[in-house]
Design a protein around this nucleic acid. Structure first.
Length: 589
DNA sequence: GCCGTTTTCGGCCCGACTGTTTTCAGTCG
């Protein structure tokens, strides 16, 4: 889906955009940002594009002109972009780190570097604690406090990667290792395998009878910037995740990868052990002890005799339990359920037959309704819901009432045309409307009533007191036209916490008003989270897994929403986009 | 810096909020 070179160049273009923003340059930041986005979602490797048709082909990529095509070629040929190296030298700061602090943007980064030589998070914290920031023009005591709070929040999530950032890397590494003929079997383990929303490091297990050869190959594979340790059956390295520098270790920024090589007989027990979670394993070992057995990464033992170990299933079975999917191994009730044969039948990606949250180029999206529909058909969906932004969100080119009605007419025509070739597919007319501070919707009821479905979400004034924010969302749910609440808690992973809301009250209102809650699959959001999903399921509130696609490629992000739903024990029946369109629409208001 | 045409350069990128100001700068969505 995503390609590494494309992504690397996209990252650099995004950085260049930030450097231009520092200097208040008009339009260039958007141009670079747009190009970065298009590269990231491009389904062909730029290297192939270049080989196929040179700079002319590169310039056919939307948002790429002569200048950027040259930069792409430069990167393909030299692995570097001079212009970017020059900018980095001029203001040598860790931009990513600094702008991850809420309230600090590119202008602030530049200003703080020029005035106080602040280069990274550590410098910033030191300066803020010393009270040096409050005296700067346009800063103040309050802002200094906010910066310190922002730093605290970033720190708590530092060193972790979004699953969406890292899964590709994991797949790349395992694909590479698989090439080695000594590798008989390979699996990811740890939090990656449990599909946690953020990942600390990557665990990989390999079955091989020649561990040394595997280890030697592993520590020398492309991208390794540091070998932490290397022994006969295990090794730990840091693998580069692109450009940048880690201020704590001075090694290239990257993710740590631990490898264990095992004989076939222990693969199951090792996989079980290294998949975790730790809490899950502690309970398992206690249960083993109760049965006069001993469980470790080397197997399930009765005395010194191994009685299970080759597969996970065998181990769980011997302990008297059903097999538990990795996503639910968090010791939050799964073991009790497994003992009583009461595990949920978790939803799977193939159960999803539609997506109800795609933005078209009628608002800020990249693709036309036709293109989105074609992409959805290709995935095998039965429907796609176009949920364009509405008028309050000016930057996304939100549509007003008249524009929505016009757009609906156009979608009707598209549907009509589709019927001739794809009888079983339909485009649903929706919108992502805004919940204003008082809970009202920025589009009038008459227009909302003409939609197949209405998503409503909070996009402004997010720092409201708890009671007020809760009431605001409940008011929106009471609107007879509002079917779905988008990204209900508003968090951005590693960036911003949830809004202050009383989630139990939200659930109660959702149940009463028959409002569906969204599981936003965008890797940065994953909102609802696993805990919320489980609560919603228990409360009997229906959910929908949506990608929030702004580009047809984003439709592929659905898997991340499904992972999250599985972590929240969701079953097919809990998720309305597993249902045929007719049944689903009937449930909506 | 790209796009799209009017083929040589103008248009693109808005509004709310916060914290700082006393009319504005920066950030965010």
């Amino acid at each position: 889906m995503y390609l590494m070179t494309n992504r690397e160049i996209a990252k650099i273009f995004s950085k260049i955009a930030l450097y231009f923003e520092m200097d208040n340059v008009d339009f260039k930041p958007q141009a670079y940002e747009k190009a970065a986005m298009n590269l990231e979602t491009l389904s062909e490797d730029v290297k192939d594009v270049y080989e196929r048709g040179g700079d002319k082909s590169l310039e056919e990529i939307p948002g790429i002109g002569k200048n950027m095509a040259d930069k792409i070629i430069e990167y393909i040929k030299t692995g570097k972009i001079k212009e970017y190296e020059r900018l980095k030298k001029k203001i040598p700061v860790n931009i990513d780190e600094l702008i991850s602090v809420e309230g600090i943007g590119p202008r602030g980064v530049k200003y703080l570097y020029e005035k106080l030589k602040i280069k990274n998070l550590k410098d910033l914290e030191r300066a803020a604690k010393a009270g040096k920031i409050r005296n700067l023009p346009n800063f103040g005591e309050k802002k200094e406090q906010n910066i310190l709070q922002g730093i605290e929040f970033v720190k708590r999530s530092t060193g972790r990667f979004l699953l969406g950032e890292i899964l590709l890397k994991v797949q790349e590494i395992t694909a590479n290792l698989k090439k080695l003929k000594e590798v008989k079997q390979i699996s990811e383990a740890g939090s990656v395998r449990r599909r946690k929303e953020t990942i600390g490091d990557i665990d990989i297990l390999i079955i091989s009878s020649s561990p040394k050869k595997v280890i030697d190959y592993f520590v020398k594979m492309p991208g390794v910037v540091k070998i932490w340790g290397q022994g006969p059956t295990k090794a730990s390295v840091r693998v580069s995740t692109g450009e940048g520098f880690d201020p704590h270790t001075n090694f290239g920024v990257g993710v740590d990868v631990d490898l264990r090589v095992l004989p076939e007989s222990q693969f199951g027990s090792a996989l079980q052990y290294f998949t975790g979670s730790k809490e899950h394993n502690i309970v398992l070992r206690k249960i083993a002890i109760d049965k006069k057995l001993k469980l470790s990464e080397y197997g399930l033992f009765s005395g010194s005799k191994i009685i299970a170990g080759k597969t996970e299933k065998e181990i769980y079975k011997t302990l008297g339990m059903d097999y538990m999917e990795p996503e639910i191994r968090e010791n939050t009730g799964e073991i009790e359920a497994a003992l009583k044969n009461k595990l949920p039948r978790l939803i799977e990606l193939k159960d999803i037959i539609g997506d109800l949250h795609a933005h078209s180029n009628f608002n800020g999206g990249d693709n036309s309704v036709e293109e989105l529909a074609a992409a959805a058909i290709k995935i095998g969906y039965k429907y796609i819901g176009i949920a364009d932004h509405t008028k309050f969100l000016r930057i996304e080119n939100g549509l007003n009432e008249k524009q929505l009605i016009d757009r609906n007419r156009k979608i009707d025509k598209i549907n009509h045309k589709l019927q001739t070739t794809n009888k079983n597919f339909r485009v649903l007319k929706g919108c992502e409307a805004n919940i204003m501070a008082d809970g009202s919707i920025d589009i009038n009821d008459k227009t909302l009533a003409q939609m197949d479905f209405v998503i409503a979400g909070v996009h402004s004034q997010i720092k409201m007191p708890k009671a007020q924010m809760t009431a605001r969302i409940i008011t929106a749910m009471k609107n007879p036209n509002v079917d779905i609440i988008a990204h209900p808690t508003g968090r951005l992973l590693k960036k911003r916490p949830e809004y202050e809301i009383d989630f139990d009250k939200i659930l109660e209102a959702a149940k009463k008003t028959k409002t569906v809650l969204e599981i936003n699959a965008f890797p940065l959001r994953l909102d609802l989270n696993d805990v919320h999903i489980k609560k919603a399921k228990q409360a009997g509130v229906k959910m929908v897994i949506n990608t929030d696609a702004h580009d047809k490629e984003h439709l592929n992000l659905m898997q991340y929403g499904v992972f999250q739903a599985r972590r929240g024990w969701a079953e097919k029946n809990d998720i309305i986009n597993c249902w045929p369109a007719e049944k689903m629409l009937k449930l909506l208001k």
